[in-house]
């Protein structure tokens, strides 16, 4: 197979290339999904690839105290892992990035690629949704922002229109009294795809009751999925193991998993409950330390 390869040095240059190429062009970042997909015939080989991974502006990870986090789309999972010390308020994201693939894959694979590839099991999606990320998108008609939870439309399908680039993700700084965590289940300890993954964000009131809760589950629906009924059930309540179990059971009711060679739908559904419980308990523990 043959295709042209263009290396964009700036965002405007990338935009021009993409607009010229129209539906013949395809964005590539780390290439760890795209190139393998092309090789295995999952996607038709495009006529041209536009590599955005050399654009400095997209490569930045900005953490501003008080201002939150701005993740450039081509920041790699490896970079996220190495920024552990500046990301102490975003452990769910680090937990997600650090479990993706292997060191070699993490050093190539980008956060933007993980999101735009839109696999139901995408590692960082639940964490970024639970942290209420905003997706920043630049396209022929300028820049727009949407909530990440609305970005996913189905497996490999997103809200991106032709020639649009996801330039980054913004997260407001998690407030005092909040905590977040990410859990995934897979048979292997590395180089594995999540059978189920769950991220939880909780914000506690002064009296330790839940003020705000966000739970996002992966691999149990065509897109990352919020467990809204579980979130609602927790607000105003105080932590107990029983309550966490109930939240897990509620989360389960949202899941519409499939049966495949990796796991049965039944197991996935039950594991959503288990992982939700674990993620909530961990997020709560972190929130308490952050009061």
């Amino acid at each position: 197979m043959k295709f042209a390869y263009y290396k964009a040095k700036s965002l405007p240059e990338a935009m021009t290339m993409l607009e010229e190429l129209g539906d013949k062009g395809k964005i590539v970042a780390g290439g760890t999904d795209l190139l393998i997909g092309i090789q295995h015939g999952k996607y038709a080989a495009p006529e041209a690839l536009v590599d955005i991974s050399f654009i400095d502006d997209l490569n930045r990870l900005n953490v501003q105290n008080g201002d939150g986090l701005a993740i450039g789309a081509t920041v790699t999972h490896g970079a996220i892992c190495r920024a552990l010390n500046v990301l102490e308020k975003y452990p769910a994201l680090v937990e997600a990035s650090s479990q993706l693939g292997s060191p070699q894959v993490r050093n190539l694979a980008t956060v933007g690629g993980n999101i735009c590839n839109a696999a139901p099991s995408a590692e960082t999606a639940p964490a970024l949704v639970a942290l209420k990320s905003m997706a920043r998108i630049v396209g022929p008609s300028g820049e727009r922002q949407i909530e990440l939870k609305d970005f996913f439309l189905g497996p490999s399908r997103t809200d991106l229109k032709q020639s649009e680039i996801l330039v980054g993700l913004n997260i407001n700084e998690p407030p005092q009294g909040s905590g977040n965590a990410y859990f995934r289940l897979s048979p292997r300890n590395a180089l594995d795809i999540a059978i189920v993954n769950v991220a939880a964000y909780v914000k506690l009131n002064k009296d330790y009751t839940f003020e705000d809760v966000c739970i996002c589950m992966g691999a149990v629906a065509p897109t990352p999925l919020r467990a809204t009924s579980a979130e609602k059930a927790l607000v105003g309540e105080t932590f107990s193991e029983k309550l966490m179990r109930e939240a897990g059971q509620l989360a389960k009711t949202h899941a519409v998993p499939i049966t495949d060679v990796r796991a049965s739908a039944e197991y996935r559904r039950e594991m959503v409950a288990v992982l939700t419980e674990k993620a909530l308990a961990k997020a709560y523990e972190r929130a308490k330390l952050n009061m």
Binding site: S102, P187, R188, N189, A190, L191, D192, I193, V261, R262
Partner: peptide, 27 residues
């Protein structure tokens, strides 16, 4: 974890390194 899985027509359904799982160093 390792297992070659066949479907009812006699076709292997996990013919990739992702779905045929051998242990990694971390396991």
């Amino acid at each position: 974890f390792e297992e070659i899985v066949y479907d009812e027509k006699g076709k292997v359904i996990n013919d990739t390194m992702l779905d045929y799982k051998i242990p990694t160093a971390l396991d």
